[in-house]
Design a protein around this nucleic acid. Structure first.
Lengths: 234, 234
DNA sequence: TAGATTGTTAATCGATTAACAATC
DNA sequence: TAGATTGTTAATCGATTAACAATC
């Protein structure tokens, strides 16, 4: 063996750590000082063993019989998740989804600062959304390079996504958070993280279909008229 | 053995099926009539074996030497994913994320029809967003029951999410698509599908940190001034 | 026929769960 | 001390990947 193995943290673990963090903040706010994995698991509905494994992966240690010290744990999670230092990001697509993300102030507490938005539409360029400038798309590669931007967020409709991707890659962006329902082609050095709501929806409806099973009510009465009525009496 | 095993489809498979569907539609539009798993895998960057397994799980059969017939495959996917019949849904939280989702017309092609929005804010109630009425939150349980609504979408800030959940459960909703960054407490019979962007972001930043590794540029120059300049010359 | 591709079974890999000794 | 909880190893489970016979 040459190197001591990079010890990459499993993705499921990574997705759970912020969940723990959130719960711990609540506990801390309520004045608690220690927690056990059993406590966390009971509330979050997860196996205590798994939580111990996750925390170990994040380099957080507890004390037998005591549990974990809340303060240390929160600290540990934040520094492991990289929430202590900020990475700047560009967002492309100042539509409704883009605007929503620009308004998520808590991203900054998670180390992500969206510093500018871009759009092709001249009507949108020049405006400010949640305090962030909307710039012409064509300026992205140059600015990204100059500012050493590493993260790009894509919230354009599917059709434009590949073109935006190419501009991001040209600008030296290394990680793309893709909200467009398209498979993006990128060089190996660039990471794509897809947030594909249609794929997500597929799992939701199938889970629903499964729990409804044979006992369910397969055909749904269309009662759209009821909505109109409800509005009148609102 | 009593029953022939429910044969539940693995979630990763479920998430991939819409990806295949999308690619196949493109191919069909381009006039192709058959595909092999190798073709799909090459474009989507996935193992052909896995694709074969996924299609088998969806009950889609091909022909040795020929591959799969595009038309059959698209048909098969759509009916397996339940995209042929529509399920009506309520959305709560007419903020920016809620508005974005209300504007996603393609949800309807995936069997999801958002028939009404709800909000607690009197300023929002009574308005229409993307053609959908915004109703007072308090009306949700009654209407949901009357209309036999099975799916609820939560796009309120974290603080209000549990209260909204309780109303949905009261209204007989069986599946919740939760965009609020909170762990929701629900009875066993209700499914929660979390779309937690903060958890998702955690995996993105960690993947980035890993690829940058030691060779990366850890400290990012703050060049916010450059954005302002770019705007001036826009 | 020969060759490509499916269908299907086996091997591998990784994550979750269980078990239990160490320990404060 | 006794008991609760971690740390850590082992067992289980499930998904991915590989292999190969069946087949058009």
């Amino acid at each position: 063996m040459i190197s001591p193995a990079p010890k990459s943290v499993p993705e499921p673990t990574l997705r759970r750590l912020p969940l723990y963090h959130r719960f711990l903040k609540d506990l801390a706010a309520a004045g608690r000082e220690t927690v056990s994995c059993t406590d966390i698991g009971a509330v979050l509905g997860q196996d205590p063993s798994q939580i111990r494994k996750d925390l170990e992966a994040a380099g957080i240690a507890g004390r037998p019989r005591i549990g974990y010290i809340l303060g240390d744990m929160i600290e540990g999670l934040e520094s492991f998740l990289g929430w202590k230092n900020t990475t700047e990001a560009f967002l492309v697509g100042a539509g409704s989804m883009g605007s929503a993300l620009l308004g998520y102030r808590k991203f900054e507490q998670c180390g992500l600062k969206i510093v500018a938005a871009f759009d092709q539409d001249p009507d949108k360029v020049g405006r400010k959304i949640h305090g962030k400038q909307v710039l012409p798309l064509i300026k992205l590669p140059g600015l990204a390079r100059r500012m050493h931007i590493l993260i790009g967020i894509i919230t354009v409709p599917g059709e434009g996504a590949q073109q935006v991707t190419d501009l991001m890659v040209e600008g030296g962006i290394r990680a793309i958070w893709n909200f467009a329902p398209v498979h993006l082609k990128v060089p190996d050095a660039v990471i794509v993280h897809n947030e594909d709501l249609y794929c997500s929806l597929a799992t939701l409806s199938q889970k629903l279909a499964q729990t409804l099973g044979a006992g369910g009510r397969p055909i749904q009465k269309r009662a759209t008229a009821a909505v109109a009525r409800a509005h009148v009496t609102a």
